[in-house]
Design a protein around this nucleic acid. Structure first.
Length: 778
DNA sequence: GGCCGGGGCATTTTT
DNA sequence: TGCCCCGGCC
């Protein structure tokens, strides 16, 4: 029984065993943080804590699921069912529903996802006749979201001089009004957005001492994963809940805080002591994931940041290879190098596709990689495009279900009122909506008795609205008599969705049908799972509760398939791969141009780079390109100054062109684009580059170095007259994956540095490295 | 109501 | 470059 303690190292065990008060576990990358968290919970259960008295909060459904599984495997399965373990949002959704009466919401209130709330904001902006070029819905949404994360209500917002001043300065002085209307509309519709869930929880606990006390009593131990990602609202909820027992156990890594743009506040972690003075800190410093070189390279990078919790992450694995840095002339070539390298490593070291990940800063970078991988027949999978629950057809079905549970849910109602098309168009909807707004009633109320509220509707339209109202009312009266699967099936059929879907024979149409079937399967599984657990009736609203907070990426389909993974660095957090490529390591891209003027933002980008590097177990390969096609045009770029933040001894500048020292100098000096002295390394050179222009394009220095690049014909390369190489001869007609057909003009260099100059039909004359070029004779 | 084309635009996104 | 949104048109 006590055997699980043996599976922990010293510091892990100490953290698990300490049970006297608040614990802060600083868990370096790959140090077994989930292990500590799961064993901690197992240990608590072992020591008499009831499952329902343990509250464990995570940020993702995936994390919660995995942890549950692991706890189930070391304790008993049934126990995990009673643990309060889940995402912040799902746990507090559950609590809010139970306590809804206290805050004036219906018990079956529904959730607006980010798209819903953006739509509503857009509608409000239009209704206020504001210019949506200035009042960009996304911008307003983030203002409101930030406010909510900081627990600033709309009343507080319009009294907050600082916020108002900021908005006025930015030309969006009406933001507070939009916020206000947005709140009213949500309240009237009986819905909350993601942020509201946390804010209302705080309001509930703030205004209802008895309710707070009840949960304080229940939760004898509170645990939080990824604590560095908590925002103020979450921090405060947690603080309130453990005021009584002081049993709080948080795990996180300040070096991996990369979500400040979503309100995450690293200070919650850095200043844990202020909130919990009697705390103990535990450091998990041994990295079990990566080789020494990778760990040390990452350490040397993150040291450039200020204000962190001191720690010394180390690895006892082998030294391993250095972090490779490879440059390329263009983004196309970069992708090509990555593909070639993967093929080579597979061939020489026997890796599988699934051992590789390609990480990038922005999603837009995936396209060229995808094209290249397709050409080179490398199977890949791109993460994070669109999650299952954000697909249009899924949202459509869910909108019906949401309206059935909560007909006042305005965004859902608007979504389905004319889908499938039933002749209730924009004009009609506008009339209905403005009547609802004026009379301060819900859109549904108007839909149920349109002639009562709107007198400009003709008979035909009234008939259509009436039919729609009847359709929905029929569903509503049906919902309690059949189970979730049955009602879903019924809705899809009766609403006409099925016919519309089956009418479409295109490939996309087929996949839409598949997706809807997948959703049906999910409802079926939900029903049978609940029945196994002994619930008599499985409420539709319970299903929605689960599903509306499920925004998980890829459920399973090809998760185990042997494919190279492509994703943003953000979505790679928490994952690990044998070999990691970090591509596009260039100033203005990584770090992002938008972060360049803020030291705080730069530090976050550096942490992001840290996260990227620490994903690698064996090999980490960084690439950057001299030119990149971005936003419709080719821009020249310089290597990210972050590369120079890594200790040189951990890097291997792989490039084999003549003057590696020049290259290195260039990398080092690229940091001098910064005016802020805290970002400049003790000056080596090129101060003239100084503060002037953050775009390094077409400077003499730059073009000179470009001359040495392999794709640019190099006039002063040592001439070694070779007329054939590796089976190719001057004059051979060849084909290249991205440049197309061409004729070999000459060879130069030798060994792995051997290059060939090829005159391409459509792409001009290029110098290519033989080892990468993969030319085909034709 | 759906389709087409021009104009504007382009971080990261656990819930 | 390509996507999304809007407006014009059938």
């Amino acid at each position: 029984m006590e055997k699980y303690l043996e599976q922990l190292n010293d510091s892990q065990r100490k953290a698990v065993l300490y049970n006297e008060g608040p614990s802060l576990v600083v868990a370096g990358a790959g140090s077994g943080k989930t292990r500590v968290l799961t064993y901690k919970i197992a240990h608590l259960l072992q020591n008499g804590y009831q499952p329902h008295s343990i509250l464990a909060l995570t940020f993702t459904n995936k994390a919660a699921r995995e942890m549950k599984e692991r706890i189930a495997s070391i304790t008993d399965e049934y126990v995990t069912r009673y643990l309060w373990m889940g995402t912040f949002h799902s746990i507090f959704y559950k609590i809010l529903r139970r306590e809804a009466a206290h805050i004036g919401f219906p018990a079956d209130f529904t959730i607006y996802d980010a798209a819903d709330s953006k739509n509503l904001i857009k509608t409000i902006i239009k209704e206020l006749q504001l210019d949506d070029k200035i009042y960009r819905p996304g911008l307003i949404q983030s203002r409101i979201s930030n406010a909510k994360n900081s627990l600033i209500t709309c009343q507080a917002y319009q009294q907050n001089g600082k916020l108002l001043e900021h908005d006025t300065l930015k030309g969006i002085s009406q933001t507070y009004r939009i916020y206000n209307i947005y709140q009213n509309r949500c309240f009237k519709a009986g819905v909350m957005d993601f942020d509201e869930l946390l804010m209302e929880t705080n309001i509930l606990f703030r205004d209802h001492a008895d309710v707070l006390q009840k949960y304080q009593q229940q939760f004898k131990y509170v645990l939080v994963d990824e604590y560095q990602d908590t925002n103020f609202a979450q921090h405060l909820i947690v603080r309130r809940l453990c005021e009584k027992h002081h049993k709080i156990f948080v795990v996180g890594d300040d070096a991996q805080s990369i979500y400040s743009f979503r309100g995450a506040n690293i200070d919650n972690m850095l200043r844990f002591e202020e909130t919990y003075p009697d705390f103990r800190i535990f450091r998990l410093e041994r990295n079990y994931r990566s080789t020494q070189n990778i760990v040390e390279a990452a350490n040397s990078l993150i040291k450039k940041n200020e204000g962190q919790i001191p720690k010394n992450v180390y690895s006892e694995k082998e030294k391993g290879s250095k972090v490779a840095v490879i440059s390329s002339y263009s983004d196309i070539e970069e992708a090509y190098i990555v593909a070639a390298r993967i093929l080579e490593m597979k061939r020489l070291k026997g890796y599988e596709n699934a051992d590789f990940a390609v990480l990038y800063r922005t999603n837009a970078q995936s396209r060229i990689l995808e094209d290249t991988f397709r050409k080179r027949s490398i199977p890949y999978r791109v993460y994070g495009s669109q999650s299952f629950y954000q697909r249009k057809e899924i949202k459509d079905v869910l909108a019906y279900l949401r309206v059935i549970v909560n007909p006042r849910d305005e965004e859902s109602l608007r979504r389905i009122i004319n889908y499938p098309a039933r002749g209730i168009g924009g004009t009609t909807l506008e009339k209905l909506q403005s009547a609802a707004n004026e009379l301060n009633i819900s859109l549904w109320d108007v839909v149920c008795a349109p002639s009562k509220y709107v007198n400009t509707l003709n008979k035909g339209t009234l008939g259509k609205i009436g039919a729609f109202c009847e359709l929905i009312s029929g569903f509503i009266s049906e919902k309690d008599d059949v189970n979730v699967f049955e009602i879903t099936e019924y809705v899809i059929k009766k609403s006409g969705m099925r016919d519309v879907l089956f009418d479409d024979n295109s490939i996309e149409g087929m996949s839409r049908i598949e997706n809807v079937q997948e959703l049906m399967k999910a409802t079926k599984e939900f029903v049978s799972l609940r029945q196994q657990e002994g619930s008599e009736d499985v409420m539709l609203s319970d299903f929605l509760m689960e599903v509306s907070l499920m925004t998980d990426q890829e459920t399973d389909n090809d998760a185990n398939a042997d494919k190279v993974t492509m994703m943003t660095v953000h979505s790679a957090k928490g994952l690990e791969f044998q070999n990691v490529f970090i591509v596009g390591m260039e100033n203005m891209l990584f770090p992002s141009a938008l972060s360049m003027d803020s030291p705080r933002a730069i530090e976050e980008e550096r942490r992001l780079f840290y996260v990227a590097i620490t994903r690698a177990k064996e090999n980490c390969i960084i690439t950057y390109s001299k030119n990149r096609f971005r936003n419709g045009q080719t821009t020249s770029s310089s290597p990210s100054f972050f590369i120079a933040d890594i200790g040189e001894q951990y890097l291997d500048f792989e490039e084999d062109i003549e003057l590696p020292s020049v290259r290195r100098q260039e990398v080092a000096s690229s940091r001098s684009y910064f005016s802020d002295s805290s970002f400049s390394r003790p000056a080596t050179n090129l101060s003239h580059f100084g503060n002037s222009n953050p775009t390094p394009s077409r400077t003499p220095r730059y073009s000179k170095i470009s001359d040495n690049e392999r794709v640019i014909p190099s006039s002063d390369a040592p001439a070694e007259k070779v007329t054939s190489f590796a089976g190719f001869t001057v004059g051979d007609k060849v084909v290249h994956a991205s440049f197309g057909e061409g004729v070999i003009e000459s060879f130069e260099g030798k060994g792995s540095d051997a290059r060939t100059i090829v005159a391409f039909k459509n792409s001009g004359t290029k110098t290519l490295l033989m080892k990468y070029a993969k030319l085909l004779k034709i």
